[in-house]
Design a binder for these strands. Structure first.
Length: 510
RNA sequence: GGGUCGUUAGCUCAGCGGUAGAGCACUCGGCUUUUAACCGAUUGGUCCUGAGUUCGAAUCUCAGACGACCCA
């Protein structure tokens, strides 16, 4: 409604007329609202405490009754009530004297301040008869006049689309949303602190790459004008972090944004955040122990416990976590022992006999094992479970298993039915690595557009020599979903990708 | 990619073939202990878009846009 905006613009002009503009330059609060609530918890109902306080924030609700009014002011720490008394405000000269200032200070604050405005107030403290700690205001200052209405004060912002498109409104009216992003920040900083304390260095690697690598995924394509060079956005940080290990950094990580040109769902956003961690002279079991300790420590810091509730289910992240091989889990779920299949046809027939789908792209026993796992096991791994020892076909960057032919030293961590982490003993044999990537390239040529490419410089780095190394990747968004009890990845990404609203969409390029 | 559901006032929603509705917000009046304040009055609409059926469409049909959820 533009009437409302017009009205507020008129109030902005009125503010100008009485000697202060609608946009303040700054304000020095003496306390956060939460600090006041805490420090004066002992103040009795109906009592006053004559100490000077100043607070700033957004006016969320207004209740005006004749010569007395109550506003609720909210700053980042929370709410406090403003106690606005005509007798007090009209005696206190809230504004520079103005010859034609007909409205009183009380009339000004009650007519020129709307819900949604940012104001600063000064005064003393009073707990009302009903027990609400309040700032008894003696002067006030407009800091920002809001021209838009707030969402419904009782129902809030229920339209999920609007919550994502106008996250600022969601944050203003939804304490739960604020808490989610506060916890996300806490989780990320706790994770960095944990690693930094153990001698890991965070080193940033390129987002723009000419050979995308390190994962099975389709990249976003872009172009560098000056070099006239086609580039892709990174789909993983793996290959560059390994180059750093070759260079002598024995403990490195990078926590940052990854881009994959894939569909959108409650578990996928095209840009998401991962952390990859590499440690020289250890293997995937070393990384498994690191994963348990790291995630449990982060959970403890963010949630205050390692037993948490996720979407109504209790999840216990207290180490140690269950470990099982993929073969064991598939056998438990289906009765099929994939170690007994010597060719794809036998495995496919056995799967079909159990009613499982057999996709054409799964062209080997190992790939069918992974299919069977995804179809029958994955969704039921609610408590944290390390799934160990993957087939070599699906893991071109992982080292061959030391004792199990056809497998690699790799685990994935599942929590709440979702893949949350992935780790290997890294493949450091350059000749083996070349063969594996060339096999991937062949798949790509055959039509698998998620297959990986050969990165010659990466292979060259391996020829220079990389120490035996354990590597780990954790999906930060999915971990934060768990720690904030969020059902959708969009609830933990401040500004998730959405289609532009119709009308603002550019014409498709020719 | 397939299916289901949704889109009506700034916000939250009702209306489901016969003049476009409610609560909150806004505006005006009243009110010195409220906290979803209250009482009274007023204001506010591309019923997502387009086509069709009909004497008549927010309502029925078809197509499209956007979103949510489920499945692949």
């Amino acid at each position: 409604m533009s009437d409302l905006r017009e009205t507020r613009l008129e109030k902005a002009a009125a503010l100008q007329a009485i000697g202060q503009g609608p946009y303040g330059l700054g304000f020095a609060p003496s306390h956060s609202t939460a600090a006041l609530q805490q420090a004066h918890a002992d103040l009795a109902n109906g009592a006053e405490r004559d100490i000077p306080v100043a607070v700033a924030g957004r006016v969320m609700t207004r209740r005006v009754m004749g010569k007395l009014a109550f506003f609720t002011l909210v700053d980042e720490s929370g709410p406090i009530q403003l106690y606005l008394e005509k007798a007090t405000l009209d005696g206190a000269h809230a504004y520079p004297a103005s010859p034609d200032a007909s409205p009183s200070g009380f009339a000004q604050i009650t007519t020129l301040v709307d819900a949604g405005d940012l104001i600063g107030v000064a005064g003393s403290l009073r707990r009302t008869d009903r027990g609400e700690l309040s700032v008894k205001v003696t002067s006030w200052q407009m800091l920002c006049k809001s021209l838009q209405p707030l969402p419904d004060k009782w129902h809030g912002l229920a339209d999920v689309e609007k919550r994502y498109r106008q996250r600022y409104l969601d944050l203003i009216v939804s304490p739960h949303t604020r808490e989610t992003f506060r916890r996300r920040a806490l989780a990320v900083s706790a994770m960095r602190r944990w690693l930094d304390q153990r001698g890991f260095l965070e080193i940033e690697t390129p987002v723009l790459q000419s050979v995308p690598g390190g994962a099975d995924a389709r990249p976003f394509e872009t172009h560098h004008n000056a070099l006239d060079l086609p580039l892709t956005l990174r789909i993983a940080t793996e290959l560059h972090l390994k180059r750093l290990v070759v260079g002598g950094f024995e403990r490195v990580y990078e926590l940052g944004r990854i881009f994959r040109n894939e569909g959108i769902s409650t578990r996928h956003n095209p840009e998401f955040t991962s952390i990859e961690i590499y440690q020289a002279y250890t293997d995937y079991i070393g990384m498994l122990e690191l994963t348990e300790q790291l995630i449990a420590a982060v959970c403890q810091q963010v949630c205050g416990a390692t037993r948490i509730s996720y979407q109504g289910t209790e999840i216990d992240l207290t180490p140690p976590w269950r470990r099982a091989t993929m073969h064991e889990l598939v056998q438990q779920a289906t009765g099929l022992d994939f170690t007994t299949f010597s060719n794809r046809e036998d495995a496919a027939a056995a799967m079909q006999a159990k009613g499982l789908a057999v996709p054409d792209l799964a062209d080997s026993v190992g790939r069918l094992l992974v299919e069977a796992f995804e179809q029958t096991v994955e969704a039921d791994l609610i408590q944290p479970t390390f799934v160990l020892d993957y087939p070599v076909e699906n893991s071109p960057l992982a080292r061959a298993h030391r004792s199990k032919p056809g497998l690699v030293e790799r685990f994935e961590l599942f929590i709440a039915g979702r893949e949350t982490a992935n780790a290997f003993s890294e493949l450091i044999d350059p000749l083996d690595q070349r063969q594996r990537l060339e096999a991937q390239q062949a798949r790509k040529a055959a039509g698998d557009d998620e297959a990986q490419s050969v990165d010659e410089d990466f292979i060259h780095a391996l020829e220079v020599g990389m120490p035996p190394t354990g590597g780990l990747g954790i999906g930060i968004d999915r971990l934060v979903m768990l720690l904030t009890d969020s059902a959708s990845i969009r609830d933990v990404i401040a500004f998730p990708l959405l289609r532009p609203e119709s009308g603002s969409r550019p014409e498709p390029a020719q």
